[in-house]
Amino acid sequence: MTERPAPSSELPAPPAPSQQAPLLTADDVARVVDRIAHQLIEKAGDSLADLVLVGIPTRGAPLARRLAARVESFSQQPVEVGTVDITLYRDDLRLRGVRALEDTRLPESGIDGRLVVLVDDVLFSGRSVRAALDALRDLGRPRAVQLAVLVDRGHRELPIRADYVGKNLPTARSQKVEVHLAEIDGLDEVLVTGGVAGGDR
């Protein structure tokens, strides 16, 4: 369950091009981000001016910034971004152990009455999203909250569904989905590794 590796200790070494072919290449990632941006514009309609893209660290944060840039580029409408660290809202700290916290930053104008789209790299059990929803509740009262993810790998443990999905990836529970983003990892790619045992690090 390493959909969100801790920033320091678990960072992969600069990725030697992976043994197996990535499921999404850098080009694929760019296409998927563009597609979600278009979908957002379409679905938001008149609400686009109220849109706030809130990334879930670690990799949801740069994804949110990319999405915002694409939305701005396609719609000529400025989009505000933020991040919300969910570590202190997790219900599985006892299982996972404590970790360093990351930034929580929201637009100065806040999120009250606005359309908040949570952005994350991988949707798995749904617990991260649940924690993010709890955090948002303490931060304000949005008009609506939606969810955008780069990859949905299945195996939900909570009744949570993404509004925007870059790619559906059927996986075995023991497999590991690794999202690499240029801002953090040096290049964009999505890998599926493991498959037998050792899915957890």
Binding site: D85, L88, Y89, A100, L101, E102, D103, T104, R105, D134, D138, L139
Partner: peptide
């Protein structure tokens, strides 16, 4: 980070 996360919030409480 905690200080930042709680800054300006009405609900100064984390679960």
């Amino acid at each position: 980070q905690i200080e930042q996360a709680l800054a300006g919030r009405e609900v100064k409480k984390l679960p």
